[in-house]
Computed example of a mutant assay.
Amino acid sequence: MSRMKHPMKVAMVSVLVADPVKAFTYYTEVLGFEEVMYDPVNYLAIVKSPLDPDGVNILLEPTEPGGIEIAKKFKAQIYKMGYPIISFSAMDIEKTVKELKEKGVTFKKELTKTDYGFDAVFDDDNGNYIQLLEFNV
């Protein structure tokens, strides 16, 4: 039970991308997310999962043009370390991984059984690693 009388939920998270137009195309056409808001002239792209229409939105936050230098450095260092910037879940991770590979997605970490289920890590073609999870239920 929440200790707050008026609890909150996560509405939106940001994923840093160099080019939100390129990222929007990748996240919608390759990863299957849906458009929430898209204004390429103003470098604004927000997507969401079709599985959770009232869930968390993802702002594809531009680091270019004229992005904040510390954001660009952070993004580059996290990528260099091989650290996933966000985690997505799949109902059938084996089928999801197969479909993504068929679309040309590159995996940094192949599908692996873990204590909590399965995971894999792929490159989002925008300078980020993304962890894909399926939890044991």
Rank of each mutant, 00 (worst) to 15 (best):
G55L: 04
D123S: 04
T112F: 10
P53V: 10
P20I: 00
N136V: 13
N128D: 03
F74S: 09
V21T: 12
K73W: 04
M91D: 15
M4T: 07
K48V: 05
K113Y: 00
T96L: 07
T25A: 15
A23W: 13
L100S: 09
V36F: 12
K72M: 13
Y26P: 00
V137R: 15
I85F: 04
T25M: 08
D54G: 07
Y79I: 01
Y83W: 05
L51Y: 14
I46K: 00
D52N: 11
T96Y: 11
K98N: 14
G55D: 05
D115R: 10
I130F: 01
Y116W: 15
A45Y: 04
Y43W: 08
S14L: 02
E134K: 13
A120S: 08
I130C: 00
M12V: 15
M8C: 11
E134C: 02
K101G: 14
S49E: 11
M8R: 09
P84I: 04
K108H: 11
R3S: 15
K72D: 02
A11S: 15
D115L: 10
D92H: 06
I93M: 10
A120K: 12
M81K: 10
Y27F: 10
P53M: 08
K22L: 12
G32R: 12
F88V: 01
A120V: 10
K98R: 03
T96S: 10
L60Y: 04
K98W: 02
H6I: 05
D124F: 00
V47T: 03
Q77K: 07
K48P: 09
I78F: 04
